[in-house]
């Protein structure tokens, strides 16, 4: 019974149908919604979520009740800390490396809490979400930090053939690399094996804790990359820029076909789900539904996916 492959394909089809329905519904309600600039707009807004959702997807895939609720906090705090480093005299040219390194470091803290101290990921990353997010607010008293180098701004706002630079340069390569590694390398096999059955993976000698620790670091680094996109885009470091990313990235990962129990799913579906969520939010914006409601609707979507996951039976030894 090729359960994993058929249910993954099935989820992908459901996702694409849902995506088409959303686009069609907004198009029927407001034909102006379907203008050519829609693609650029959606991709511009999608980059940050796409990067964060990729990390989220890998952590959930790795199993062990893996989840990273702190991604939003990491995005905010990496943006703030890397800007503060610049203000403290770090050379501006190091900003991209700083943002990613700080993100990876914050992710490593999650990794230690989960794999060494053995705190449940849900609790550990909920804790760090508040610590990181709160720290970003406290360090700035809620204000923005200006001083992003001018040479970075075109990267945040520029388009090539209607596609934002950062989507082309960061999101596509990241997803491509992740898809290739998951499908064609031993690392991918280990991640699926430990995600589905941690005990058996351990018995065959897969170093489960090390891989899981690395997944949290990677998720942190990808959140740092999202922070970099935000700096380039807005030209300043905002302490609340990561708000709600934990909810949206989790929704994207699960909508994209990653099983919440781990060990099943792929990242291409996650990218499609990201684009769908951003399209939905853009559409709601377009028809003047407030941001508050948008969060609620994404939350409802997440609940729906989890329900579907429970309704589709899973065999497990």
């Amino acid at each position: 019974m090729p359960r994993s492959t058929t249910s993954t394909a099935l989820k992908l089809v459901i996702l694409l149908v849902l995506f088409a329905a959303i686009v069609a519904a907004f198009g029927l309600y407001q034909p102006r919604f379907l203008q050519t600039s829609l693609v650029s707009t959606v991709l511009q807004f999608a980059s940050m979520l796409a990067l964060v959702a990729l990390g989220q997807a890998l952590i959930v895939l790795a199993g062990g009740a893996g989840i990273d609720l702190s991604v939003g906090g990491i995005v905010s705090l990496s943006a703030i800390l890397s800007m503060m480093a610049l203000q403290a005299g770090a050379p501006p040219v190091t900003l991209p490396v700083l943002a990613v390194a700080i993100g990876a470091l914050l992710g490593a803290v999650n990794g230690i809490l989960v794999t060494r101290i053995r705190i449940l990921p849900l609790i550990a990353t909920l804790g760090t979400l508040f610590v990181y997010g709160g720290l970003a607010m406290a360090l700035t008293a809620g204000g923005s930090l200006s001083g992003v180098p001018q040479w970075l701004v075109p990267f945040g706002r520029g388009l090539v053939g209607g596609v934002p630079y950062h989507f082309l340069a960061l999101v596509l390569p990241a997803y491509l690399a992740a898809a290739v590694i998951l499908t064609f390398t031993a690392w991918g096999r280990w991640l699926y094996a430990m995600g589905y059955n941690e005990r058996s993976a351990h018995l065959v000698g897969i170093r489960v804790d090390r891989i899981r620790f690395f997944a949290y670091c990677l998720s942190g680094a990808l959140s740092g990359l999202a922070a970099l996109v935000s700096l380039a885009w807005f030209g300043s470091g905002r302490p609340n820029i990561g708000l709600n990313l934990e909810l949206e990235s989790l929704a994207a990962a699960l909508l994209g076909g990653i099983a919440i129990t781990g060990g099943s799913g792929g990242v291409i579906g996650v990218l499609i789900a990201v684009l769908m969520i951003v399209t939905l939010k853009t559409g709601l914006q377009f028809v003047n539904v407030s941001t508050v409601w948008q969060v609620g609707i994404v939350g409802a979507l997440l609940l729906l996916v989890l329900l579907l996951d429970f309704l589709i039976p899973r065999r497990r030894a």
Binding site: T185, A186, R189, R199, A201, V204, I206
Partner: peptide
């Protein structure tokens, strides 16, 4: 100690895969 979500061949080799390293990545 088998992983049900992987194939027979993948299980036989799990943890000791036959790989070709490209840029250090075990394909």
């Amino acid at each position: 100690a088998l992983s049900e979500n992987l194939s027979v061949a993948e299980n036989v080799y799990l943890g000791r895969e036959d790989v070709r390293r490209i840029l250090g990545i075990p394909f």
